[in-house]
């Protein structure tokens, strides 16, 4: 049983991954709900963790693995309004997931049932990684950089040093480069400050496919900031933190993307 105060939050999370992965299992235990799935080309991977405190009420008395088709769950979530409360429940035997939406004023109740699937998922083990560079920037800025550079080239090189982070690309029509200085990320005198907060152990430069990076920016509505984790010889981790309605941290959505390599 999981009761979420704003159904729209779950919809945003599913919408941010449904174009990348077709199917996934929701692994539920008493602490929360975890998902891990790779895209069909095995180049990128998405994980999310929805902690117990994301929900108004949460109980799960035994570990469950719920096989979900992403297009189907997205269709059901679209039937609710974003400020409806949403109660998720499973039956016994566990072959359906039920969605009960209740409008804010309590005048409308709707219920949908999603047929669950038996999925044999390939699962990767992601070790705890000491990244060389951790870059925090505004989601809107990261999204704009990716979309702008994608009009020029197919891949983007991210280079992080102590002083700045640069994003550059090359295509048939020419080149593009965007550089963000190390500085405070956020608002200042009601003006957005477009800079990046950089924590660095060692400078890193890696290239990534813009097509995938653009998929990731669909999570931009979850949070103001995005955190890029980079290290030599490891996939990029793009992290969006998830907050509950009390603005407490209540989980994350993380994308992993294998770099382009010189052969």
């Amino acid at each position: 049983n999981a009761l979420i105060k704003q159904a729209g939050l779950l919809k945003k999370i599913i919408d941010a991954i449904k174009d990348l992965i077709d199917e996934a299992t929701l692994d539920c235990d008493n602490d929360g709900i975890y998902l891990q799935a790779m895209d069909s080309s095995h180049v990128s991977l998405v994980t999310f963790y929805l902690k117990k405190n994301l929900f108004e009420k949460y109980s799960c008395n035994r570990n469950l693995s719920l096989g979900i088709n992403m297009t189907s769950i997205a269709k059901i979530l679209k039937c609710g309004m974003s400020d409806d409360t949403l109660l998720l429940e499973t039956n016994n035997p566990i072959d359906i997931l039920s969605f009960k939406f209740e409008s804010r004023r309590g005048h409308k109740l709707s219920q949908f049932q999603l047929r669950l699937m038996n999925l044999e998922m390939e699962r990767l083990s992601i070790p705890d990684t000491e990244y060389s560079c951790i870059i925090e920037m505004m989601c809107s800025e990261f999204s704009k950089v990716c979309h702008d550079l994608a009009t020029i080239g197919d891949s983007m090189t991210i280079t992080c040093t102590k002083k700045n982070v640069t994003f550059d690309t090359t295509g048939d029509l020419g080149t593009g480069i965007v550089s963000l200085k190390q500085g405070v990320v956020g608002s200042e005198n009601d003006e957005n400050v477009y800079a990046a907060s950089i924590k660095i152990v060692k400078p890193v430069s890696l290239s990534f496919s813009l097509r995938y990076l653009i998929y990731f920016t669909k999570a931009s509505s979850l949070s103001n900031k995005v955190i890029l984790h980079m290290g030599e010889e490891v996939p990029l981790m793009v992290e969006y933190k998830i907050f509950n309605t009390y603005e407490e941290e209540a989980g994350y959505l993380r994308y992993f993307l294998a770099p382009k390599v010189n052969e």
């Binding site: 080309s41 095995h42 699962r123 990767l124 083990s125 290239s207 010889e233 490891v234 390599v261 010189n262």
Partner: peptide, 14 residues
């Protein structure tokens, strides 16, 4: 030549 790596080159299967 630049090629796209796969995730399994970096992370083992669970």
């Amino acid at each position: 030549k630049v090629t796209q790596a796969e995730l399994s080159q970096f992370y083992p299967e669970d």
